[in-house]
């Protein structure tokens, strides 16, 4: 079993850094806007924001190729944007409009794009883990070298079906990368209160699965670990686990009173470890100008504002949609 921790500092070209900066900033601004729209009553129900965790999905998406698949939990907006889905379609799904990816019928937690190989958006904690292994099963069955990224949180990591899946993924050597996004809290329960295990990725050892812990606030560290995982899976060696140490700045959902952690803890992460700020500093060192970054900031703001406008203007689904998409007609 390969047991390692990523400590090595990695480098990236200015162009790569600019891309990561844009991708992460898009997620952050999009999520801030979603929070705002929720406050205005335009988004209902549950809404789980990804702010703080942007480097995880942006770093890993930079290692994918055509045909690779991804499946995640209900904290899914960032994953969708990072795999190239249209911000308009995502925001309109949040507002429950016909222009949304699921025609407004799925909502924040249940969104899909067959085209982008994004297989949800799942509201049941842990359930997306075997689903991801099943997607990997289909690629193995077809004999291609695609991989499936299966994202879940530190909370889901205590679910029984995760370990059933580890076991089968290893028996069948499925090309699945289990990404544990460890943001420290399962809703309001800290990892330390939920398990005595010193680390979550090491549990894979019981099934013979290799893995590593990754600094999830550093997009380059995430990318490097992702490349190792992808290489491992594509070469037919079976699954790989990445425990990505990250942090969510906002509450679990919009109605989280945040009594389980201190304001100082959140503030310290934002000030000292912020993933976007880290890339921004690297960019300035790499001779990017403030003006260049300001232009990016403005472009992103425009994209997000346009998505918000689209999500307000797109009509609610026609009432006939209540009765569609229940059963497919046999061809």
């Amino acid at each position: 079993m390969a047991a390692k921790r990523t400590t090595k500092k990695t480098t990236a070209s200015k162009d790569e850094l600019l891309q990561y900066y844009k991708d992460m900033l898009l997620i952050r601004r999009f999520e801030e806007k979603a929070g705002q729209l929720y406050g205005m009553g335009l988004i209902g129900g549950f809404c789980h924001l990804y702010i703080g965790q942007e480097a995880v999905v942006v770093g890993l998406e930079s290692t994918t190729k055509d045909g690779d698949k991804r499946v995640t939990t209900y904290r899914d907006h960032g994953h969708m944007l990072a795999c190239g889905m249209d911000p308009n379609g995502v925001m309109a799904e949040l507002t429950g409009r016909i222009g949304g990816y699921s025609k407004g019928k799925g909502g924040s937690m249940h969104m899909f794009s067959k085209e982008a190989h994004f297989y949800g958006g799942h509201g049941i904690v842990g359930a997306n883990v075997p689903l991801g292994a099943g997607l990997a099963f289909s690629d193995k069955y077809k004999g291609n070298d695609n991989v499936t990224f299966t994202y879940f949180g530190d909370g889901a990591a205590n679910q029984g079906q995760v370990y059933e899946t580890y076991n089968m993924a290893m028996i069948w050597e499925l090309p699945v990368i289990f990404v544990i996004e460890n943001n420290g809290y399962a809703m309001g329960t800290s990892v330390k209160r939920a398990t005595k295990s010193p680390s979550l990725w090491e549990r894979g050892a019981a099934y013979g699965i290799s893995g590593e812990e990754v600094d999830g606030m550093d997009v380059l560290a995430v990318r490097e670990a992702g490349l190792r995982a992808v290489t491992h899976c594509r070469s037919g060696k079976g699954p790989y686990i990445l425990e990505v140490m990250t942090y969510r700045y906002r509450g679990h959902s919009m109605s989280d009173p945040a009594k389980y952690r201190t304001r100082d803890e959140v503030q310290k992460m934002r000030e000292e470890r912020d993933a976007i700020e880290q890339v921004r500093k690297r960019l300035l060192t790499a001779k990017a100008t403030e003006d260049e970054l300001k232009t990016i900031d403005k472009d992103i703001k425009d994209i997000v504002n346009a998505a918000a406008e689209f999500s307000k203007e797109s009509p609610e689904p026609d009432v006939s949609e209540l009765w569609t998409d229940i059963i497919l007609e046999a061809s």
């Binding site: 075997p130 689903l131 292994a133 099943g134 997607l135 099963f137 077809k142 079906q161 059933e164 089968m168």
Partner: peptide, 22 residues
């Protein structure tokens, strides 16, 4: 395909495989 005795897990893997074109 023989599975271990893990209905929850292999039912989920089956559904995922159906989304993958099987």
């Amino acid at each position: 395909v023989d599975t271990p005795i893990t209905e929850h897990g292999f039912a989920g893997i089956g559904v995922g495989a159906s989304w993958g074109g099987l």
